[in-house]
Simulated assay, not measured.
Amino acid sequence: MWKDTEVTRRLGLAAPIVQGPFGGGISSVELVVAVSESGGLGSFGVHHLGAAGIRDVAGRIRARTSRPFALNLWIPLDDADDPRIDDAQFARNAALLQPYFTELGLAMPPRPERFAPRYAEQIEAVLAARPAVFSFVFGIASPEVLARCRELGIVTLGAATTVDEAIALEKAGVDMVVATGSEAGGHRVSFLRGADESLSGTFSLVPQVADAVRIPVIAAGGIADARGIAAALTLGAHAVQIGTAFLACEESNANPAHRGLLFSPDARHTGLTRVFSGRLARGIENRLMRELQPHADRLPGYPVQNWFMGALKKAAAEQERGDLMSLWCGQSAALLRHRDARSLMTALVNETSALLDKG
């Protein structure tokens, strides 16, 4: 009974479970396929990819599964598509980060022509790929894009961290809303107010959003087992989105050191910081977070800081230096038990059925 919701009917899913999309290269085709083939909605975060990369990812997913999947983009917020930073600001930030580059044996990369792919090219590639779902964060896709999605039969899914954001998404014509609580790992995807002002917890936010909008609500943040799923559905959600539990699976593209730390006592201690990307995000507290936090107000915003840290994090991952990586993690990592996605999906479905179908 609990598996029959507006979300499962609309998307053709066997269970109302959405795998959270991971940006920055930690999504994987293997994870998307495993989740979608298990009856959930696999998702791939493509905000770091150009048009060719998006086409390649969509093609590789389709070669492995005929089941629905989602592609996720970041809507340009503020000046993110064409950031304003002068050479002096660039040099100051490079000098701040130079000791870490040196420690990892890296040369500081020169200033690029662009700090991130062009959104206009990304969205055209997503529309051409025609995934079952186009999900997005940090804002609302334009009316033109939403209209094209309707024409192409693509379901749209926007993220909200407040009730007002959920209402704005519904008014714009978005099909479904992900109500994202502050317990979630990764980025706080606020867009109407500052991320620091949009930190409602999941189980406070979900029933308020469910009361405020008529479109299906998907609960996200701090959900890692059947108890979280049952609670979210009871509070009015039509599905759940789970991130950290899937990130910890061997199919994800997270570095092995990162995945291992998700099962460690360190994962009990997470913090919100802008030091890794220029935007507020939750991860396991480590040395780099602590040392850069006093400089957070002077760091450039996204995508400039994200570009600086990209090369640094890549080398740290290759050297298994968890102290110098971004270790995205939600607040419920202590509940993790499964290390492969199919086993996780099976457990989530069976254990939620035991809770809900049997009263």
Rank of each mutant, 00 (worst) to 15 (best):
G39V: 10
G39E: 13
G40W: 08
G42H: 02
G42F: 03
G42N: 04
G42L: 07
S43H: 06
F44H: 08
F44R: 00
V46H: 00
H47W: 08
H48G: 10
L49D: 01
L49Y: 00
L49E: 01
L49A: 02
L49Q: 02
A51Y: 03
G53T: 02
I54N: 00
R55M: 04
V57S: 01
V57M: 04
A58K: 02
R60M: 03
R62Q: 06
A63T: 11
A63C: 06
A63W: 07
R64H: 10
T65I: 04
S66D: 15
R67Q: 14
R67S: 08
R67K: 15
P68Y: 12
P68A: 10
P68L: 09
F69R: 03
F69C: 08
A70T: 02
A70E: 01
L71R: 03
N72T: 02
N72K: 05
L73E: 00
L73R: 00
D78K: 12
D79L: 08
D79V: 03
A80S: 15
D82N: 12
D82W: 07
R84M: 05
R84C: 04
D86L: 13
Q89A: 15
R92P: 00
R92E: 11
R92W: 03
N93A: 11
A95S: 12
Q98Y: 09
Y100N: 04
Y100C: 02
F101Q: 12
L104W: 07
L104H: 14
L104N: 09
G105Q: 09
G105N: 10
G105V: 10
L106R: 05
L106M: 15
L106S: 03
L106Y: 08
L106G: 04
M108C: 08
P110M: 06
P112G: 06
E113K: 04
R114W: 00
A116N: 01
A120Y: 04
A120R: 15
A120D: 13
E121R: 13
Q122C: 09
Q122R: 07
Q122D: 04
I123C: 07
I123A: 08
I123G: 02
E124C: 08
A125K: 03
V126M: 04
L127P: 05
L127A: 10
A128G: 13
A128H: 10
A129P: 02
R130Q: 15
P131F: 13
P131E: 09
A132V: 05
A132K: 12
V133Q: 06
V133F: 11
F134N: 01
F136H: 14
V137Q: 06
V137T: 15
V137C: 14
F138V: 08
F138G: 03
F138Q: 01
G139M: 06
G139C: 09
A141T: 03
A141H: 04
A141R: 06
A141D: 05
S142F: 13
V145L: 04
V145F: 03
L146D: 08
L146F: 10
L146I: 13
E151T: 11
E151Q: 15
E151H: 07
L152V: 09
L152W: 07
G153E: 12
G153M: 15
I154Y: 04
V155L: 11
G158N: 11
A159H: 05
A160R: 11
T161C: 12
T161V: 14
D164E: 14
E165R: 15
A166K: 13
A166S: 14
I167M: 14
